[in-house]
Design a protein around this nucleic acid. Structure first.
Lengths: 217, 217
DNA sequence: ATAAAAAGTTAGATGAACCTAATATTTTAA
DNA sequence: TTAAAATATTAGGTTCATCTAACTTTTTAT
């Protein structure tokens, strides 16, 4: 296991390279809130440790070893989040920062027990899949609320952001994972969407919010 | 809040200065497994932060501010231990190392919830008192098993070591906090003690073990 | 009481993780 | 197609937490 800092680099590289398999050093620098030279020298170190493939002036990609480490950290993060919600009774909007710390706890026993207590869960409180202990992860095909035609009904399966502000917003709108919603109206002008919710209330979401909500039709 | 390293220094100073109010640099160095110059320079730093009182060639003592910080860490450690045992179902012999990591988690919400779930507990799984959120701690007068006369019956209230090897040993002997024991025989030759246990079994403890078990008559 | 042992200090070095300033390479767009 | 913008690198410096080697102060024991 690497240092806390190394783990955070690995995790961010994994997250940012999801789409293309690669990250720019500058993206990483921004995400981690450090300057480019810091990223540059860390990449050299992670490259000698065979955790990333890195050639000067080229994008960064994780090696298999690097991916495995990333998934182990993500597993711990998501197990921790679910544990904090289900066992400790915290809200889904307040668990991210705590899980950021718990994900670095080095104890297989601790995470074994969490996994047992939660009965080997498949998804975290935000609907994100939890990698299994071998790093296998179910990546579902994802449909966003903004891709649904008017009149369609769908179930919320996940949300794209694990940030307090966003989740607080969903709380005030009364939306949760598992909720069924029907598209009442899509505004052409600003992309906002009106939903019919199980609570019978109509809910207005801006495009910015709706695109971050994943559903299953 | 200081760094992880600083927190570990503070905690060790507190533990080692319990008896006399002071620690030698060399004791600290031994406990933390670092060399004397490391301790020396850290003490200068903690002194400028007003966490320790320290004069060259003199012993170290915590300031009030330092004590408060130490007690906050100890509170987190002991709450974590009890949580790991009571809520997560781990054994008292395996929670120390995990609690060493959890005690550095920076989240009042997390510890608030643990405290609530455990109903503001007063003692950790080893019988050590848990400081309250203001750092107030109940230090009980302590009687060791080796101080009891033959024929007396007492209840185990705490054990002096939070180390796997010691606790494993107590587990094999079948001893737990809360157990009632009667002193059957004290051997003058080697200080060992034979107990009558609630399980009706006789248990032989060496002096080394018996002196680490606290009881209430 | 003084010499040896124990305890503590200072100086200078190292590696991790960061920084700024200067420079080089690659991409993009006039 | 070349100049500007974006991206990446190098050089050299900082702080934290550690080290070794050399030295000083205090304690202890003959």
């Amino acid at each position: 296991m690497g240092s806390l800092t190394e783990e955070n680099y690995i995790k961010s590289i994994y997250a940012l390279s999801q789409a293309t398999g690669e990250v720019y050093l500058s993206e990483l620098a921004k995400k981690l809130d450090v300057k480019l030279p810091s990223v540059n020298s860390m990449m050299k170190r992670l490259a000698t440790k065979k955790l990333v493939a890195y050639a000067p002036y080229k994008g960064i990609r994780l090696t298999e070893k690097g991916k495995k480490e990333a998934l182990a950290i993500i597993r711990k993060h998501r197990l921790a989040e679910l544990f904090l919600v289900k066992v400790m009774g915290l809200g889904w909007e307040e668990v991210h920062d705590i899980a950021e710390q718990l994900e670095h706890v080095n104890s297989s026993r601790f995470y074994e027990r969490i996994d047992e207590l939660l009965n080997s869960p498949k998804f975290d409180p935000h609907g994100e899949p939890i990698p299994d202990s071998n790093g296998k992860i179910h990546t579902q095909k994802r449909t966003s609320l903004i891709d649904l035609a008017e009149g369609l009904t769908a179930t919320i399966t996940a949300v794209a952001e694990d940030e307090k502000l966003f989740l607080d917003h969903l709380n005030t709108k009364g939306l949760q994972i598992g909720d069924a919603v029907t598209i009442k109206k899509r505004e052409l002008f600003d992309g906002s969407i009106t939903l019919q919710h199980k609570s019978k209330k109509e809910i207005l979401l801006t495009h910015q919010v709706a695109e971050r909500i994943w559903v299953e039709v």
